[in-house]
Amino acid sequence: MSGLRYGWTTGACATAATTAAYTALLTGDFPDPVEITLPKDKRPSFALAREALGDGWAMAAIVKDAGDDPDVTHGALITAAIRPGAPGSGVTFQAGPGVGTVTKPGLPLPVGEPAINPVPRRMMTEHVAEVAARHGGTGDVIVEISVEGGEDLARKTWNPRLGILGGLSILGTTGVVVPYSCSAWIDSIRRGIDVARAAGHTHVAACTGSTSEQVATALYGLPDDALLDMGDFAGAVLKYLRRHPIPHLTIVGGIGKLSKLADGHLDLHSARSQVNPALLAVLALEAGATPALAAQVESANTALHALRLCQDADIALGDLIATRARTSALNVLTGSPVSVDVVVIDRSGTIVGRASG
């Protein structure tokens, strides 16, 4: 990964544009460049591409720089338009042109909400509060985020299939785009296994992301060098462990990705594998679901939506997904002395399914 240039998420760009626009609304002047604080204490500065100030409104726009990552939104113009909200209303978000709206359940936002994810919302809200405290504002504002050409860009993503209509999602959990190529990521997985073996670890956890890594740490107390940043590359972990075994592997991941592993997919990226609703319906039937519930599961928008439907009926879909995912992993590991546990979580990190040998 050395030599690759990091970039900034759409959430970071929207936060910077919001900060600049609200500052101008209160003071009459746009900070340019505008500095923001990201999670993990990074403090990048962003140059403004556009700015405008009128009676009771302000607008600032930033061109997204994704660094060396092949990001569909690289070069997109992200705009925040700010106007006062009702007293006591806090920060209200609206989807402007090019930002999608959630139309189906199963996503981390309610139906009808702008597709501005929770962490970017929190970042913008925190920066609005800081600007208000610095310049005597109330912090009651309406924030409208737009992405120029976002509706066309969204057709290159899975947003339409997920029921996010009208544009892109505003994303990012750290604000930073880390430019991993597939080969670099897979190489880092292999090196992680090598390091764990050299340290004498008998238990490693392969995690799909930061939340699953936190769950693995809380469950098992594993040291950092026993945590494998698997991401979407389940096959890379399993195939390398087949040749270089460690006695005990725990796979921890979100229900969407692990339902793909349960279906036999080893590359869990959304561009290369999809959740199979028909499989989830079959698993629900195996767990005692009625045919009517199984039909609802098969038409669910996401694996998380299917899980919620089953939880309401006291059907342990998460455990069955974990069991199937464990079987898929063991099939790859055939002949290698590696035992496998699987832990399935939801977006909040709550364990919703487990399987162990």
Results as ranks from 00 to 15, higher is better:
6 Y>G: 00
6 Y>V: 14
7 G>N: 05
7 G>K: 12
7 G>I: 03
9 T>V: 05
9 T>H: 13
9 T>S: 14
9 T>L: 09
9 T>M: 09
10 T>M: 01
12 A>D: 11
12 A>T: 07
12 A>G: 07
13 C>R: 03
13 C>Q: 04
14 A>E: 10
14 A>Q: 06
16 A>T: 07
16 A>V: 06
16 A>S: 05
16 A>E: 04
16 A>Q: 08
16 A>W: 11
17 A>K: 02
17 A>F: 05
17 A>N: 06
17 A>W: 10
18 T>Q: 10
19 T>E: 09
20 A>L: 10
20 A>Y: 08
21 A>F: 09
21 A>S: 10
24 A>K: 02
24 A>I: 11
26 L>M: 05
29 D>I: 03
30 F>R: 07
30 F>A: 10
30 F>Q: 09
30 F>E: 10
31 P>V: 01
32 D>H: 05
33 P>E: 15
33 P>F: 12
33 P>N: 14
34 V>Q: 11
35 E>Q: 15
35 E>V: 05
35 E>F: 09
36 I>K: 14
36 I>M: 09
37 T>H: 13
37 T>N: 10
38 L>F: 09
38 L>R: 04
38 L>G: 04
39 P>R: 14
39 P>C: 05
39 P>S: 08
40 K>H: 14
40 K>W: 04
41 D>H: 14
41 D>C: 00
41 D>R: 11
42 K>V: 12
42 K>T: 13
43 R>F: 09
45 S>P: 01
46 F>C: 05
46 F>H: 00
47 A>Q: 14
48 L>G: 06
49 A>G: 07
49 A>L: 01
49 A>W: 04
50 R>A: 10
50 R>E: 15
51 E>T: 14
51 E>I: 06
51 E>M: 04
52 A>R: 15
52 A>G: 14
53 L>V: 06
53 L>H: 12
54 G>T: 04
55 D>I: 01
55 D>W: 01
55 D>V: 01
55 D>P: 04
56 G>F: 10
56 G>I: 02
57 W>F: 15
59 M>L: 15
60 A>D: 01
60 A>Y: 07
60 A>M: 12
61 A>S: 15
63 V>H: 13
63 V>G: 00
63 V>E: 13
64 K>N: 08
64 K>C: 03
65 D>H: 12
67 G>E: 07
68 D>N: 13
68 D>F: 06
69 D>H: 06
70 P>W: 13
70 P>T: 08
71 D>H: 08
72 V>K: 12
73 T>N: 08
73 T>R: 11
74 H>L: 07
75 G>F: 11
77 L>D: 01
78 I>H: 05
79 T>E: 10
79 T>L: 08
80 A>D: 06
80 A>T: 04
80 A>V: 02
81 A>I: 00
81 A>P: 00
82 I>R: 03
82 I>M: 13
82 I>D: 00
83 R>V: 11
83 R>M: 02
83 R>H: 06
